[in-house]
């Protein structure tokens, strides 16, 4: 379990650094938007499953928490485009 938590933590730190690197990438806003939102979804999926421990929880609650981030990311994307 300790290894699983540590791997998740390293993965989250790496995604955060990649996300921060987008600030000065000079890429078009659409590309930055998609990549940044993709990283949000990946990070929150990790937090929900591993840190919150919802991987072992009833599907309803895990689904609601995973759906939340997907919905926010989708809404932000659709509003921007």
């Amino acid at each position: 379990m300790m290894i699983k938590l540590t791997v998740s933590w390293i993965w989250l730190m790496a995604l955060t650094l990649l996300s921060a690197a987008l600030v000065n990438s000079g890429w078009p806003v659409e590309r930055v938007l998609i990549l940044a939102l993709l990283m949000v979804v990946l990070k929150n999926q990790q937090i929900v499953d591993t840190f919150m421990g919802l991987q072992r929880a009833p599907w309803f609650w895990r689904g609601i928490m995973q759906f939340y981030t997907l919905l926010i990311a989708l809404l932000v994307y659709l509003l921007f485009i």
Binding site: T16, S19, V29, V32, A36, V40, N44, I47, V48, V76
Partner: peptide
């Protein structure tokens, strides 16, 4: 203990969304 922990993870989750909205997506 678990209730306090999941509340803290929720605070983290919210910041994970806020970070790109406020600082990254220009």
């Amino acid at each position: 203990i678990e209730s306090g922990a999941v509340y803290w993870h929720m605070v983290d989750m919210v910041w994970v969304v806020l970070f790109p909205l406020v600082y990254v997506i220009h």
